[in-house]
Amino acid sequence: MKEGKDKIEEIDCMEAINGLYAYLDGEMADPGTLAKFEHHLEHCHSCYSRTQLETALGQLIKKSAKDTAPEKLQTRLKKLIQGL
């Protein structure tokens, strides 16, 4: 296990920051790229903190921008769909 980890190629902070949003959005599909990114986070406090910040901010954006459709719209749509 340790031997495998040692083989992970190092990336610099610029490359890590460049891939940060793809990582957070679940778009870092390549296992090799994902391993390099996570390996960097384990060793770089700055990028780790940045990832924590972006994660927290992303959760806050999600929570803040979630809406609930008003009841009158729900009623309006039920009638509309019945009449289609």
Binding site: K66, D67, P70, L73, Q74, L77
Partner: peptide
């Protein structure tokens, strides 16, 4: 529906227009 209304709200920035847009 909540997602549709949410997207409509972010686009129109107005509740009445958002409801019309969803409908």
């Amino acid at each position: 529906l909540d997602s549709l209304y949410g997207l409509a709200m972010r686009l129109t920035r107005n509740a009445a227009d958002a409801e019309d847009l969803v409908s």
